[in-house]
């Protein structure tokens, strides 16, 4: 009962965030303009299309949708990987999955430009970013796990190492690249939706569709937070579950990174907020995280478009500015809790 009310609130917030994002920005767009744009879509798609209609259909809407889809992907994979690692501090960006993907993506931007003419090349970068994320996730799992389960400190240390190597790699690649390439590579380090188009929206909705398969594993995720052997005694095929979550996380994170760069802290903060305000039960946590992730990223992107208009701030900076202090708050809370014991 309470849960369905809270879900309704989330859906309403999402609608609110989308509407707010539609009407905020450099070009002034009102609700009436949006209605005009809608009517022009279903009516004559004449070449005499309104400038505002073009802005709505080709700039703002794809950008908002890409932001929402990316946010949903990042939040839901964050929630799933936290369940798998049995630790609320596992965030794809924090443990190096995002930077692993970014390194490979940057590499293929700079050194793959010779294949630029090949049809379907634009799909190549998301694909290698997925592979980069996959390798990074396996590495963290391998370094952070022992027969006794996953050690948080080992996992975070492995994340630091992977992040350091990946950032150094991105740095080296930018050093070797020409000016045009440098701009695209810098974009990865900071995260931005400014290149959003309908092609990217199509790809990320397909990916979100696949990532939502995680929602079929919610019972198993609930079981595995008790521990791997406990989960087996509850009938969960743990090795299969691990593989599925790792692949889907790498897919969701890797493709998001390839389309929008590194957007930190969404995968960490969103599941936390849901656990605090709704439930830690994965049956609630996963879908609610997807909704809240979409809301937060759309809002962060709106902020990034508005605060320094007509220029814009990379959205990754906005999420880090919000997420960093929130992370410090989590640490303080944990500190107080252990001091109480």
């Amino acid at each position: 009962m309470w849960l369905s009310i809270k879900f309704t609130i989330l859906v309403l917030c999402l609608i609110g965030a989308v509407s707010l994002a539609m009407i905020s920005g450099v070009a002034h767009i009102s609700a009436a303009d949006i209605l005009t744009a809608l009517s022009e879509l279903f009516g004559e798609l004449a070449e005499s299309g309104h400038v505002k209609t073009i802005i709505i259909w080709d700039v703002r809407l794809p950008r908002i949708l890409l932001g929402g889809l990316t946010g949903a992907c990042l939040a839901i994979t964050g929630a799933a990987i936290q369940g798998l690692f049995r630790n609320p501090l596992a965030d794809p960006a924090l443990i190096g999955v995002s930077s692993g993907a970014a390194l490979v993506a940057a590499f293929s931007i700079v050194f793959g430009s010779m294949f630029g003419a090949v049809t379907g090349y634009w799909l190549f970068i998301p694909f290698v970013a997925f592979l980069g994320g996959l390798v990074a996730t396996w590495l963290v799992m391998w370094l952070g796990s022992s027969v006794n389960g996953t050690s948080v400190s080992l996992m975070l240390l492995a994340g630091i190492a992977i992040n350091a190597v990946a950032i150094a790699g991105v740095g080296t690649i930018s050093y070797l690249s020409n000016e045009a390439q440098l701009r695209s590579v810098t974009f990865w380090a900071l995260g931005s939706f400014s290149d959003a188009d309908w092609r990217a929206v199509g790809l990320s909705s397909a990916i979100l569709g696949v990532v939502l398969l995680l929602c079929r594993e919610t019972h198993n995720l609930n079981a595995i937070i008790l521990g791997e052997s406990e989960a087996r005694h509850l009938g969960v095929e743990v090795e299969y579950l691990k593989k599925k979550i790792v692949v889907l996380t790498a897919l969701g994170t890797g493709v998001a990174v390839s389309l929008a760069g590194i957007i930190a802290f969404i995968g960490l903060v969103v599941p936390h907020l849901i656990r605090l305000s709704m439930s830690a039960d994965h049956r609630v946590l996963l879908p609610a995280s997807a909704l809240l992730g979409a809301i937060l990223v759309i809002c962060a992107d709106t902020v990034s478009r508005v605060v320094v208009a007509p220029a814009e701030l990379p959205v990754g900076i906005v999420t880090s500015l919000i997420g960093g202090p929130f992370f410090i708050y989590l640490i303080i809370r944990q500190k107080q809790r252990t001091e109480l014991d």
């Binding site: 049995r86 630790n87 609320p88 389960g149 937070i225 008790l226 521990g227 406990e230 656990r275 830690a280």
Partner: peptide, 10 residues
Amino acid sequence: PQHTELHFSF
């Protein structure tokens, strides 16, 4: 089992 660790606020 002897010990079960659970870090989530269930």
